[in-house]
Design a protein around this nucleic acid. Structure first.
Lengths: 207, 207
DNA sequence: ATAGCATGTTGTCAGCATCCACATTAACTG
DNA sequence: CAGTTAATGTGGATGCTGACAACATGCTAT
């Protein structure tokens, strides 16, 4: 639906030309630096040298902007983790581990987006799109888990619990690893080591 | 520091008498129903039939109110889980499992408070108090983990990782179990079953 | 050219946080 | 018991914000 203008308008146009995408980019930047609460549509408009209500054309209100960010974030996150699974080779257990690791890494590498999708005030506004993407991801993951069960040390654990535990671990790791309060308070904490340890414990290999 | 008035002022007083505590209670109520973003000091003042700037005497601003809520929440949460450990008897492994289970349950039973302490915009304002409480909890938990290591199936795992994994699991479970988007999207999900399953997996018993 | 549409602008309004001067009460002090 | 002081609450002013409405501009297709 988003129009791609193949022109490069260096002159000062009446039309901004790419406001929607730049609004999202600027918003993500602000969120990364100052948090969701500090986000202001008017401030964004000022930053982009645009009138205070120009954003209305693209996002009905603040919740709508955050909702759009959430949608992009979920798609990016889930394709990233699914792709990581495919890149991990043919061994189902390795694929599953790669998926969990990639998903955690995505959160660490995309602090601002992670903060948005984990914010209840945002997820409350989630539309059908997001829910369908999440449902599809559940199906995909269940298959991956079933495929890997034979190679795990605890093959008898029900798939739903394994999946839930994976989601919980990912969300928890995202919360802990991106929150300065935890990082400051917890024992010396290297994100990669923690992720590896948790993946090992979540999906232990046989050998 | 909080004064306890032993009077019951049924008449309409100039002084409210207990504004601070009632502000917190009303705020928690609003957060539970509409989320942190919907919180407004002026609306709270209206609800309590008090002038719009009365809250200033008790909380310099909104962040200050949320910070106070966070402090109370952390103390309540951590004493609840520590107490659950003591109540679980003498077996160190059972104590540790009881702690983890109680901590997760606290989040489910105190949705609003959980949402506050997991909100980055709030935790960013955490003061020395909160940090000291968290540090003390780490010490307490490390001891519990060390005591339980002999009874677990994986005694060789470093204490810090076990602790981190526990925190991650608790925070993640809180996020997942209290967020309607997850509850709606995930496979049929009973909080108690999930908690038990996760605790079993986190701290497996020998037998 | 011109009608229609997407996009951006200016103007306006209510709600909110924050600050300030002032009012009232409770607690302390001699 | 009287007078002082600190704590608490009031009312108004200011500036920022989100939201809406009416208008302006430029692209595109007929």
């Amino acid at each position: 639906m988003s129009v791609a203008y193949d022109v490069l308008n260096d002159d000062e146009n009446y039309h901004h030309g790419n406001l929607r995408d730049e609004l999202i980019a600027a918003a993500v930047d602000v969120i990364g630096r100052e948090g969701v609460a500090a986000l202001s549509l008017r401030a964004l408009a000022r930053d982009l040298d645009v009138s205070h209500s120009a954003p209305t054309r693209h996002f009905k209100n603040k919740a709508d902007l955050l909702s759009a960010i959430m949608e992009e974030a979920y798609e990016d996150m889930l394709t990233t983790t699914v792709d990581a699974g495919y890149l991990a080779g043919d061994n189902p257990a390795h694929r599953l581990r790669a998926m969990a690791r990639a998903c955690m890494r995505w959160h660490v590498d995309n602090r601002a987006l992670s903060e948005v999708i984990r914010n209840p005030d945002v997820s409350r506004t989630a539309g059908r799109n997001v829910k369908e993407v999440l449902a599809a991801f559940y199906i995909h993951s269940s298959r991956a888990i079933l495929g890997a069960q034979g190679q795990s040390r605890n093959p008898e654990r029900p798939v739903e619990f394994v999946y839930l535990n994976m989601i919980v671990s990912v969300v928890g790791a995202a919360s802990v690893l991106t929150d300065p309060l935890y990082v400051e308070t917890l024992p010396a904490l290297d994100a990669d080591e923690l992720i590896d340890d948790m993946v090992d414990h979540l999906f232990p290999l046989k050998d």
